[in-house]
Design a protein around this nucleic acid. Sequence first.
DNA 1: ATGAAAGCGCTAACAT
DNA 2: ATGTTAGCGCTTTCAT
Lengths: 340, 340
Amino acid sequence: MTGTPTIRDVARLAGVAVGSVSRVLNGHKSVSADVQRKVTKAIARLHYEPDRVAQSMRLGVTRTVACAIRDISIPDFGSFVTAAETMLRARGYTLLLATTDERKERELELLRIFLQRRVDAVMMTMSSEEDVALRRAIKQMRIPVLLVDRDQPADLDGVTIDHRRGTFAATEYLLRLGHERIVLLTGRPAMRPGRERVAGFEAAFAAAGMKVDPHLVRAGAFSAEFGFREASAILSSSSPPTALISGGMAMLPGVLRAVAQHGLKIPRDISIIAGSDSDLAALASPAVTAIRWSGAEQGQIAVELLLNRLEGGYRGEAQRVLLPTELIIRGSCAPPRKSR
Amino acid sequence: MTGTPTIRDVARLAGVAVGSVSRVLNGHKSVSADVQRKVTKAIARLHYEPDRVAQSMRLGVTRTVACAIRDISIPDFGSFVTAAETMLRARGYTLLLATTDERKERELELLRIFLQRRVDAVMMTMSSEEDVALRRAIKQMRIPVLLVDRDQPADLDGVTIDHRRGTFAATEYLLRLGHERIVLLTGRPAMRPGRERVAGFEAAFAAAGMKVDPHLVRAGAFSAEFGFREASAILSSSSPPTALISGGMAMLPGVLRAVAQHGLKIPRDISIIAGSDSDLAALASPAVTAIRWSGAEQGQIAVELLLNRLEGGYRGEAQRVLLPTELIIRGSCAPPRKSR
DNA sequence: ATGAAAGCGCTAACAT
DNA sequence: ATGTTAGCGCTTTCAT
């Protein structure tokens, strides 16, 4: 008898039937103290560990939850994943993690992989809420799928951040300081955070009885590269903005780089608000006013919702949770300079 | 016939035996074009996806690699995981991810979970290289285990960063600038990065014919909290240092906070070097000189080494790769002020 | 309370 | 080239 011991080895050593070992393993009520003892001893002697693969096969359930995220080197997503994994593990689940790099083909491939691996549930971001292939692939999953900061498909559970309100508050704050030429840099409208930020931005202008100059809304990507490129371009234009909202979790470094490269001083020459909080925002000089929320809380709630379905027997409508944002006012905003 | 279709359903619909379906699925040579066609059609019709759980059970291999990391919200680890996962997926493997929070009990628990899930290999950080329980648990794994920036157990594969050389270069640089009272903040010596940084620090002093004041080496944790606490304490002391090395990936924010709180100007009042590069280091004012390396490269190599064993048939000695560091000189260091 | 045995979906060995 | 079947390790009936 070599290799990993099986339940059979345990049964043989304990001198009982495999069924009895299984019952001990699963804390079944009807097991005599004697069998209990013998089995426990055999398990310890053999260093037996039950095979979860075989259990999955037999039970038709893997106790595995998959997570597909755009980019987990972004700290907010890292917090999301950490919180989710911690909670899942406490409930006996294991996390299967993948990165999508915001690419549709990867997302489709992953959905198939998750299907084949028979995971019990999925939580994911998606590169587009409109894409037909993606929607069809999701529809074919026979398991709970939870959206991370996405609205569509509408029949799925989801945990979203209130970027709209967050951006509204940020824009309102800049407007109150007297800014008029405010630029918003954010992701494509195919993804909820991009859409919502634009909506909040426009709503704040509308509330102030003003209109947004469409030229000042750049919704192309959430990345630092995009932030750098767009900020550089717009700061070089003939009528540069007096304020800028960096509407992406990883965008601020690019924006700050562009501002520095243009020799501009914050907040004297330009006011900046970050669409997500970070060490960089907190410790830059001056510290950058930021829209803050909790990725960890998002991860925790995501798991709660999934567990509701998996174990709570919840079968109802799509569960949706909207998490609040908070505007952390620091030193990166000031009234615009009168001159130009 | 409801529920997820099985190979049996495909066989029935195609009018062939399950063995033939399996052969088509696995690209076996001897399959007639006719069977090929019928099976392919049936698979498409049913949206059949092979059950990897059943495959794992049958094959005795899961094509799953587990990764247990201290804290994946640290961007360097995020890059490690992203690179590893991308490479694993390209080879048909799936990543199972867990966070240890640097706690021994979690690490032990995870090792058991990985065993039960029958993963093919593990890569992980560990809270201690000396702990007996941990070493015994590792020894019992019958699969390849790769260490992430750890030396022990010595018979395991590993990918390490050359923190010693990195810290040596940083210290030497400060010494050349004329600093003598340099403080090193880093993690416990039970973990390689802590040990190596201390060693590099001491070697640089020795090379300059000087001796390290043991009071100035604080090896307690890699965290921002530790950085803040220790930096605060030492900056308040009667003879504060003129330079500080922040020897941890996530420590810099804490150090900068302490420096700011003490009203000190960098580099005039104190020179700072970060033990890892980050957006914060690059964009702080002044930008912080940092010891840089690639977490992504580390992740990629980790997978290569593991794949060597898993598929390359490698059975030899422990594979060890040491990754270089580079000192990125920015504006956070200057000669010490003559006065005090 | 416990033993015996069926069967989860698959692959590979064995027949034909 | 293709069909048939054993068996991977487990849980859960069904007997007793």
